[in-house]
């Protein structure tokens, strides 16, 4: 099966700044999350995939072809850019229909395809209103619809959930899951782990222009587990030391710290085991737990660990 994306020593320089640094990897068909903090190189990689940029060194192939100066390839690719740009004087329907026509469709074919694409993005309700009156969520859905209008086999979505409200996010997530389930390949970028985790379990972690890790969510979680986690526990007044002495006996705990505000900061290499036994500890210590949190659950923590490990 041809990979949807192949890179070999792919490097993109902006003057002396490196956008993408010596990437070599393949992505098989399916839904893939491209994860990394802002400035990691995600958008640069997507721009290289969509021939907006040309590699400085190395090569990139999308659906088995070099994308640069290859407009025919865009019959098979739909791209949703990150920036909030439109022909604002149009309605969503006119916008998507116009771009359908640029994809080589007849007028009537483009009308039907635009209607279909907007319907699949739950945008029919507002599609005949001018885009300039839209909320951020409506604009995001319109952008995804234009990427879908010509029914591409590969969908490239750059931060599609940015700025959407919870309902809009849920709808877009469901749409992307559905498109993936229909057999379409999707590369979706984000800097928020849990956003992408709802859409796919296959990730590519990118940081500083390099691929840090790739694989499914379990592999990435296990990568996380190789490094100590910090878990914050806040309990009732004067109860922290009771719980702390109990937690100290847990095999999963590597170190403990009692902060000035009474919060217990727990270090562990086995967060799953710790969480499984935590309720029992709290019960035995007879303390009221107000908050149990960990900054290490977010993507930034994963990157901090991975980059720190290098």
């Amino acid at each position: 099966m041809t990979p949807i994306l192949e890179t070999r020593e792919l490097t993109k320089l902006y003057g002396v700044v490196i956008g993408v640094n010596d990437m070599t990897f393949d992505i098989r068909p399916g839904v893939h999350g491209l994860l990394g903090p802002n400035g990691a190189g995600k958008s640069t990689l997507l721009k290289l995939m969509t021939a907006q940029l040309r590699p400085s060194v190395g090569s990139i192939r999308v659906l088995g072809e070099d994308p640069w100066s290859n407009p025919e390839l865009f019959r098979r690719i739909g791209f949703c850019p990150e920036y909030d740009a439109f022909y604002d004087f149009m309605t969503a329907f006119e916008f998507v229909e116009s771009l359908g026509r640029l994809s080589g469709m007849s007028r009537s074919g483009a009308k039907q395809a635009a209607e279909r694409a907007l319907e699949s993005c739950n945008a029919t309700e507002f599609m005949h209103r001018p885009i300039r009156t839209y909320s951020k969520g409506m604009r995001q859905r319109t952008k995804v619809a234009q990427a879908l209008v010509h029914d591409p086999e590969l969908l490239i979505l750059d931060e599609p959930l940015t700025g959407t409200d919870p309902i809009g996010r849920h709808e877009l997530t469901e749409l992307i899951k559905r498109l993936g389930a229909e057999g379409r390949s999707i590369v979706v970028s984000s800097h928020v782990l849990h956003e992408v985790q709802e859409m796919t379990h296959e990730f590519l972690l990118i940081f500083g222009g390099r691929i840090l890790a790739s694989g499914n969510v379990h592999e990435i979680r296990s990568l996380m587990n190789e490094f100590p986690h910090r878990i914050n526990v806040r309990c009732g007044p004067g109860q922290a030391h009771l719980l702390a002495s109990r937690l100290a006996s847990d095999a999963a705990v590597t170190d403990l710290e009692l902060a000035d505000d009474g919060t217990i900061v727990v270090g562990t290499r086995d967060p799953a085991g710790f969480y499984a036994r935590f309720a029992e500890h709290a019960l035995h210590a007879k303390v009221t737990v107000h908050e149990l949190s960990s900054e290490d659950d977010n993507l930034e923590a994963v990157f901090r660990y991975l980059t720190g490990a290098r």
């Binding site: 021939a51 407009p71 850019p81 740009a85 439109f86 771009l99 994809s103 080589g104």
Partner: peptide
Amino acid sequence: QNQTLTYLFTRPIAR
């Protein structure tokens, strides 16, 4: 300037 060029250049039509 309007950042709409991407829509035109990611279509199956030569620049």
